[in-house]
């Protein structure tokens, strides 16, 4: 069952028409290939037009599209299933909202880490809606240090509505866990590539987001707060989320313009949810190309460049 967002309704309608026409053609044995072709063309044009004019808020909705691939789908596809999931932070428990493990891509071992959202109602609960607890960030850091020890590059997939704001999360130091990751990731001596594949909400996203290359998929968002929460705090109402989404400049292209990320990974026509295989292939290409580039630098040079990059972010002036 395909899910359509409100603004995707014209696409849904055309696809239904196409389906009907196909059935009629089948039953009546009349040659309808010409009109089928035209319908297909129209679907493509409509999709292109809709996706070329998405508002920031609509992109936020695409980033949360239930049919979008999540972290485990990327890892499975990129490694062709040749990977080993690793569990636990060695202190408290295994956080199901943060997954990771060694995987093989074209004969090279990579440490994959990412937030994981659930694929159905039951799994969404199990994955805590992709909101890690402190043990999730500590599990991620443990895996990164493991990768560093054995000189394996790290790829993180970011997709979270935020770090979990629960009681135990506070008891176990959510703030400290994220802070520690920012600090430690800054000086990891192996290549680190971070890719926002869905939602990049605030410190919960940044907690696995300090990389030599930080990419955003075309229809994702990354900011300090969700548009909904921003609306409720700054406008004191939930009704200004569209306005907030615009003001926050949270889309991939805005983030690239502001030099806060290193690149935008194009999505298939109609979004990543429209063609999983294509987005997996594109992401794989970006990872391998980036690794080739990063391999040329010494670990010291990479760390220096990484730290300098983040330290240059910000706009100030003298008064």
């Amino acid at each position: 069952m395909v899910t359509y967002l409100e603004f995707e309704k014209p696409i849904e309608e055309l696809r239904n028409q196409l389906e009907n026409a196909k059935q009629i053609a089948e039953k009546s044995k009349v040659d309808m290939s010409q009109s089928l072709k035209e319908l297909e063309k129209k679907i493509e044009e409509t999709t292109r037009e809709i996706y070329a004019n998405l508002t920031p808020w609509q992109r936020v909705m695409v980033s949360r599209h239930p049919d979008r691939p999540y972290t485990l789908a990327y890892i499975n596809s990129l490694t062709g299933g040749n990977w080993i999931e690793l569990h636990g932070d060695r202190t408290v428990k295994d956080d199901k909202a943060m997954v990771g493990g060694f995987g093989m891509v074209d004969g090279r071992t990579i440490m994959f880490i990412g937030q994981q959202k659930g694929i159905n109602t039951k799994m969404r609960q199990y994955r805590n809606f992709g909101m890690p607890n402190p043990e999730g960030y500590r599990k991620a850091l443990r895996l990164m240090k493991l990768a560093e020890k054995f000189n394996k590059p790290i790829v993180t997939f970011i997709d979270t509505p935020g770090a979990y704001p629960g009681l135990e999360a506070e008891e176990r130091g959510q703030g400290e866990a994220i802070a520690r990751n920012l600090y430690e990731m800054s000086k990891l001596n192996v290549p680190v590539i971070c890719i926002i594949i869905g939602e990049g909400a605030s410190g919960g996203a940044l907690g696995i987001g300090i990389g030599d290359k930080v990419y955003m998929l075309e229809n994702t968002w990354y900011s300090v707060i969700s548009p909904e929460s921003c609306s409720s705090i700054l406008w004191r109402s939930w009704d200004f989320k569209e306005k907030a989404a615009e003001a926050l400049k949270l889309t991939a292209s805005d983030m690239l313009n502001n030099k806060l990320v290193d690149g935008v990974i194009p999505e298939p026509l109609g979004g990543a949810h429209n063609n999983h295989e294509e987005i997996f292939a594109t992401v794989k290409k970006y990872i391998l190309n980036s690794l080739t580039e990063l391999d040329k630098l010494s670990p010291e040079e990479r760390v220096k460049q990484r730290i300098n990059k983040f330290c240059s972010m910000g706009v100030v002036h003298e008064m």
Binding site: L206, Y222, I225, R306, I307, C311, M313
Partner: peptide, 19 residues
């Protein structure tokens, strides 16, 4: 909030600098 992602990146910046 009024500095949005620029504000977020100050977390990264200060932590990186502390190393």
């Amino acid at each position: 909030m009024m500095e949005a992602a620029f504000s977020l990146m100050q977390m990264a910046k200060t932590s990186a600098k502390l190393t």
